[in-house]
Amino acid sequence: MIRSNFFLLVRSTSTLSHHRNPFSAFTISNLSSSSKLPGSAMETYSKDTEEPKKDQQKETSTRDVDPSKNVSDDILPHILNLYGSCASPRDFEIYAPDASFEDPLMCAQGVKQIKSAFYSLSKVFSESRITEYNIKENILPHGRREIVIDNKQYYKFMGKDIDMISLIKLYVEDGKVIRHEDWWNKKPLWNRETSNVPVVGRIIEMARRGSMLATHAMMKFGKDPTA
């Protein structure tokens, strides 16, 4: 199992298993960035006077958004299932068909490959879950959302407990996740853009794609276990 061996090596050798708990208490917060839409004037003309009239848009702030309507409220339970090795086909409905998933080990493209990535967790670890987390939801241009989950993950392999700090970033459009990034140890993913040596970045990208393809084949190309 290519993914299993490499994944175990990366996770088990992480010094994060020796870190102290970074959370003083279990906290969950749905926060939105303070982003205002500028008031814009739209000119219309009266058929009688042909004089322009201005309809002033109301300024809105994400601070006024009802927290119960945050996109993260619908997506978070499914993310917890994915990382908890108890995902069902319904949990993957949060993704757009051409969504991508990346972590330091794999680079998945499309829902079927994302299924293979998360279904493989239970094949490697006897236990896995997100134990603590803090959420921020930001409104981006063009109606997109960014959900940032500062979290701590727990894994158990052959009786050994492994704790890992991570930063999950979800980019959402029309209610669907279009990109899912998992930054282990809160470090940006390595690629040709983030690496100081572009050639090294390309090699890392190829290795991650190869790891994903091997895992995808091993997991029967994203076939749902219950199907």
Results as ranks from 00 to 15, higher is better:
P89A: 06
E51T: 10
S126L: 00
I204K: 11
L167G: 02
I94Q: 04
Y155D: 01
M206V: 13
F157H: 14
T13L: 12
S100F: 05
N30L: 09
V199R: 13
I168W: 01
M212H: 03
D224L: 04
Q56Y: 14
S120E: 06
P89D: 09
K112Y: 07
G175H: 09
G159K: 07
T49G: 08
E146D: 06
P141A: 13
Y133C: 03
N134C: 12
T60S: 12
G210R: 04
I147N: 04
E181G: 01
P77I: 06
T226F: 09
P225M: 04
K169G: 03
S120L: 00
G201E: 08
P77S: 11
F118H: 15
K186M: 08
S195Y: 04
N134A: 10
N5M: 08
M212V: 02
G201S: 11
S72Q: 07
E59I: 14
I135E: 02
F118M: 07
C107L: 12
H18N: 12
A217V: 08
G175W: 07
E127G: 01
K136Q: 13
M218Y: 10
D48K: 15
N138M: 12
K36Y: 13
L170W: 05
Y95R: 06
G39S: 12
K169M: 11
P52A: 14
I147D: 02
K112H: 13
H180W: 01
F125T: 00
M206Y: 09
L9W: 07
S122Y: 00
T226W: 05
F6E: 13
A96W: 02
D174N: 15
N81Y: 00
W184T: 03
E127C: 03
I203W: 04
V71P: 01
D150G: 02
K223A: 14
R209F: 04
Y155I: 00
I162T: 02
I168M: 08
S126D: 01
Q113D: 01
I165M: 09
S29H: 07
K58R: 12
P97I: 05
K176W: 04
K156G: 00
E181W: 04
S35F: 11
S4F: 01
S85A: 15
R90A: 13
D150V: 04
N191R: 05
I162N: 03
N185M: 11
I94V: 15
V111R: 03
P141C: 06
W184F: 14
D91I: 01
D163R: 06
H180S: 02
S40I: 13
G175R: 09
G159F: 04
R209S: 08
V71D: 03
S32T: 14
Y95S: 05
A41D: 10
E173C: 10
D150W: 09
T44M: 13
K54G: 02
V65P: 00
G210I: 06
T194E: 05
S72R: 04
K53S: 10
Q57R: 06
S29Y: 03
K115D: 02
E51Y: 05
A214Q: 10
D74V: 12
S12A: 12
V10Y: 02
P67S: 08
P97T: 05
L80F: 05
